[in-house]
Every structure is written in C-alpha cells, then in structure tokens.
C-alpha cells in the first residue's frame, strides 16, 4: 500500500476544464503513437489476464464449459470459509483502526501549532511506510517474539511467554491488522493532513468566533470535508487487504506451519494453482475476491460521495 490518495479532487477539476476547452486539432496517428506502449501493456497485463481468468473460472481442466462448478467446488472446500472469516476479521479490524486513528492523528497533527513538532510527527508516522511487504513482516516477527522483542515486558504482561503463544490463530487478525496499520497508516496521515490544509481558514475562524470548540470544529467541519478522502482510503485499503498473502505466508514459514499455509483466500488460490495444479479453481477464487472487493468499493463510492463535485 503506497500513497495513492492525491487525485480525487483534481479529477473533478480536469473534467470541468474539459467542458470549456478550446478545440484541439485531431491528429489520431500521433495520439495512437503516444498511447501505444501503454495500450500494449494494458492489453497484455490487464485485459487479457482478466478475460483469461474469467474463462478459466467458468471452464474445466479440459476447457469445456463448467458453469458454476468451479465456484461450487471452492466454496465447498473445507478451507474456504475459515479463510473468508480470517480475511473478513482482519479487514474489519484494519479498516476501523485506519478510519478512527488516521483521522484522529491527522486532525491532531494539523492542530499542533509548533511547526517543527508537527513536521517531526508526520515524519515518524510516514517512515515505516518504507518497510512494506516482507520486510515489515520480518520486523514484526522480532517484535512479537518475547525473547528478542523490544516490548517483551509488555508481551509478558499480556500473558505471552513465547512466540508460539503470541501467534495463536485467534490473535492473527489483530496481528496482521497491526502490521498493516504500522506500515500503511503514515502515508494516509500525510494525505489527510494535506487535505485538511485545503479547508479554508476563514471557515474554521468563523466557527471559532461562533463559539465552537476544537472537538466541534473537528466533528462538524473537518470530518465532513474529509469524507471523500476517508472513502478513498477505505477503497484502496480494501482492495489491498482482500489480497492478504505475505503476512500469513511468512508467519506460516516462521512458525513451522502453526499458522496454516492456507490461512487467507489468496494463499488458498495459490495452493489450488501450484499444489493441486487446479488453475480453474484458483481463478474462481481470484474472481470471487475481485467481485467482493469491487462490490464493497461500490458501497464506499456511493456512500462516501467519492465522485460528487464539491
């Protein structure tokens, strides 16, 4: 998850400009030339694989039409629903933590008057983002191992004496959410901070003159204005979160398979493809994931007013 939030509002601007623009001389050949490399890449690594995944999901190993058989097979798999539960729990914890804490931190950091302090805080939040992927998981393996951990005392206080006790299945959704939050929250805080800077100072001043306290200002003015950015954050995080893979994969390896290697849906798809040589089943899982992610995104788009004009 990198920083991808800077574009919703400008999109509206771009569309507005389009309405009144001067006529552009048409030169199709040149336009096609300029977009050609991108179109070739989009076809090869976007459209064709997507269509191929669709084809695989609805056919059997011999290429015959299979209807919904692949979907019935994977949803009937005893590993499927536990994986769904794991991913869903993880997503709920992660998204709630993101929405609540990122918004809170952005508002607080924005309210800090000392410029050096505000800048230092943003930097501290933002820097862990550099440790995405396997590196952040590895770092957290250390942090969660009471023998080596910098917060070993805290872990023991919570009743965890060994690494194996920390990573019992019930704790995993929280652990994965913590890792994802640690690495991903900072860039969203920086983005929200930027968005808060765009709220005009007069509006805030007027509210203060009318007797609003900082909490009311945050709740009544800043939060509604951040709504779009919050939905955008949720969509991007959802899309990434449903694909949970590295975290359980590495943890499975590090725990001698106490964490199963089919913990998440994406891992299950990988097992289907490369352990069972069942690419049709794997495609069915990928497709289900995609549909769920897009459907949930649609909720945020409509409820979050993402494509409304200001």
């Amino acid at each position: 998850m990198t920083m991808v939030g800077n574009t919703v509002r400008p999109a509206a601007v771009a569309e507005e400009r389009e309405a009144g623009r001067p006529p552009v001389p048409r030169s199709n050949a040149m336009s096609y030339g300029l977009i050609s490399v991108y179109v070739v890449l989009a076809l090869a690594f976007g459209i064709v694989p997507a269509v191929y995944a669709l084809y695989l999901a609805f056919t059997d190993a011999e290429g015959g039409f299979a209807g919904l058989a692949n979907f019935a097979k994977v949803t009937g798999d005893f590993r499927f629903w536990p994986a769904v539960t794991h991913v869903a729990l993880y997503l709920i914890i992660w998204l709630v933590a993101l929405v609540v804490l990122v918004t809170l931190l952005a508002v607080v950091v924005h309210a800090i008057l000392a410029r050096w302090l505000s800048r230092t805080l943003r930097f501290v939040f933002y820097l862990p983002g550099a440790l995405a992927g396997a590196s952040s998981v590895l770092l957290w393996l250390f942090v969660l191992d009471p023998t080596a951990s910098p917060v070993g005392g805290l872990l023991r206080l919570l009743g965890f004496e060994s690494f194996v006790q920390v990573i019992v299945p019930g704790n995993l959704p929280v652990i994965f959410a913590v890792i994802a939050f640690w690495a991903g929250a900072g860039s969203w805080i920086v983005i929200m901070y930027g968005a808060l800077n765009n709220i005009s100072a007069e509006v805030i001043d007027a509210a203060r003159v009318d007797g609003a306290n900082p909490v009311q200002i945050a709740w009544r003015i800043q939060l509604p204005m951040l709504r779009k950015w919050i939905s955008y954050m949720c969509i991007m995080s959802l899309a990434a979160g449903t694909q949970l893979f590295i975290e359980p994969q590495l943890l499975s390896q590090a725990s001698n398979a106490i964490v199963p290697n089919d913990y998440s849906l994406n891992q299950l798809a990988y097992q289907y493809a490369f352990q069972q040589n069942d690419f049709n089943g794997a495609a069915a899982i990928s497709l289900l994931l995609l549909v769920i992610a897009l459907a949930l995104s649609a909720v945020f788009v409509t409820r979050g007013g993402l494509f409304e004009r200001d």
Partner: peptide, 12 residues
Amino acid sequence: LIPNTALVLPIF
C-alpha cells in the same frame, strides 16, 4: 482498482 495480485495467476 483491481488489486495487482488478483491478476498474477492468469499472467503466470
């Protein structure tokens, strides 16, 4: 909006 891991298997 499509997570890039979703297409990895078909690309493979």
